[in-house]
Computed example of a mutant assay.
Amino acid sequence: MVAGGALVAAVLLGAAGSLVLAGTGGTGAQAPNHVDIGFAQDMTVHHQQAVTTANWVRDHSTDRPLRELTFDIEHGQTEQIGRVQAWLRLWSQAALPTTGHMTWMKPQTPHAPSDPAHPSRSMPGMATTEELNRMRSLSGRDLDIYFLQLMIRHHQGGEPMMRAAQDRAAIGEVRNLAGQMLTAQTAEVEAMTAMLTERGAEPLPPPH
């Protein structure tokens, strides 16, 4: 999980830039729908694992290009956590999901709401506890390769959420952020795949 002070600072920074966000108040303002809210909550959880993992590898790898990559991931996704958390506060919504993950990605109508009794309990691409423990047990080239494999899969797992928010969120700023995330992470996947090839390794199978 993101260090408390860093996350608070990111939330405050995000709030400062979100005061004019559509849907936060005012006559005729666009209200967030379940996609805006669910995306912000789930992407917080998904990003937190990426930030935590990148931070650990930055402190333990000796590979300079890889450490620069982990810094970029940590910095970019911490800022994005701040933005979505600021929006959730302005919308008076919970910071994290309360009925499982990704239920917001299912079509909702007044007659067919998502079923909170059968939520999805995990998100594609997320590393398991065992995988994170294995990563922390490695060093040198083995650590670098395994981190790249985990992070490529992690980014790939977040892609469906970004596309869903880009297509179906009610608020333009949310759609824009989802598109920015998708562009950035697609470029990072390409860079990480090239780094794996340079190190004689291949990505893990993509998440289902």
Rank of each mutant, 00 (worst) to 15 (best):
L19S: 11
R175P: 03
L66K: 03
P65F: 03
S137H: 06
E198S: 12
D59G: 09
G25Q: 08
A164S: 09
S61K: 01
G25M: 07
Q156I: 05
Q156F: 00
A201R: 01
R141C: 04
M192C: 06
P107F: 13
V57D: 00
T103W: 03
G125K: 01
Q108I: 12
A40G: 07
A15P: 06
T24Q: 12
L138S: 00
L143Y: 14
L204R: 04
R168L: 14
P160Q: 11
R67C: 08
G26A: 03
Q149S: 04
T53I: 02
T197A: 15
D72Y: 14
R89P: 04
A201H: 01
M161I: 03
R64P: 12
N133S: 14
T53S: 10
L90G: 10
W56I: 05
W104D: 10
R83A: 11
T99I: 09
L196H: 00
M151G: 04
P160H: 09
G5L: 15
G140W: 11
A86Q: 09
L150N: 01
G158Y: 10
L12N: 12
S92H: 13
P205G: 11
A194D: 06
Q93D: 10
R141K: 11
Q156V: 06
T98H: 13
A3G: 10
L21K: 08
M192H: 02
T52M: 02
V45P: 02
D63L: 06
P205W: 03
L66P: 03
G4Q: 14
Q166K: 13
E74T: 00
Y146N: 08
P203G: 00
A3T: 06
A6M: 08
A169D: 08
R136W: 01
T186N: 10
S137G: 13
D144T: 09
F39A: 05
D63S: 11
T98C: 13
T99G: 01
H75G: 07
A164Q: 05
R168V: 02
A95S: 12
T62G: 12
G26D: 03
N176Y: 08
L88A: 06
G82Q: 01
H154T: 00
T70N: 02
Q149C: 02
L12M: 13
V11M: 14
N176L: 15
G158L: 09
Q156A: 08
E190W: 01
A170G: 08
S139P: 01
A54E: 02
H208A: 15
V11E: 10
R83H: 12
Q49L: 03
D167K: 07
L196K: 00
E79L: 14
I37A: 00
Q49Y: 10
R58T: 14
R134C: 05
A112S: 15
H75V: 03
V20R: 14
E198W: 02
Q48I: 02
G158W: 10
S61W: 02
T109E: 05
W87F: 13
L90N: 08
N55Q: 14
W104E: 07
G4Y: 05
E188L: 06
G28H: 08
